[in-house]
Amino acid sequence: MNRFAGWLALFGLLAPLAGWNAEPGFTVRRAELFQHEDRSWGLDADIDYHFNETAVEAMQNGVPLTLVLRLRVKRARPWWWDETVISENHRRTIRYHPLARAYQLTAAESGVTENFATLRALLEELGRIRNLPVRAPRPFDSGDYHAALSVTLDIESLPLPLRPTAYLSPQWHLNSPWYRWSFAN
């Protein structure tokens, strides 16, 4: 039984490694949280998106791709583990319209759609995040904060037949490393 557990653990360790080993398709180049005058928070970020051929081919064949922007903010506490202040996911779906030969970007939360003639234009727009509203559950206490931002392709949103392949193939493990920064309030 122990041997079996060992194999299982090894398998569990190796499975994500397959994804990490792949060249990261996305990179968060810059990210910043700022406070409006009304004390609400906004996010500015610059992200490079580089889809590989597999993803582009799938998209052009009608497979919608969903990207998840993950924002985590933690407050450092002495003698205690960090308190998670913000844990937000923003979903963006990219879809190709063959009739109009246009790429459509949809924000899942607001339902706002934008059309782009080229994928590059869409990705530029997608990568330029300006003043994205961040919902803080309560006003931030003073202290040191650690923030992290990453973007990842959501495999669970892919069509069902593609999922097992996507889980096993490094081609589909498109995600950026966590971009971390600290700020004080």
Binding site: E57, A58, N61, G62, V63, P98, P159, L160, P161, L162, R163, P164, T165
Partner: peptide
């Protein structure tokens, strides 16, 4: 789109 998607997913569908 559906047809194209099916065509694209043909091998994946079989695998599934």
């Amino acid at each position: 789109v559906h047809y194209k998607e099916l065509g694209f997913l043909r091998s994946s569908l079989k695998h599934t």
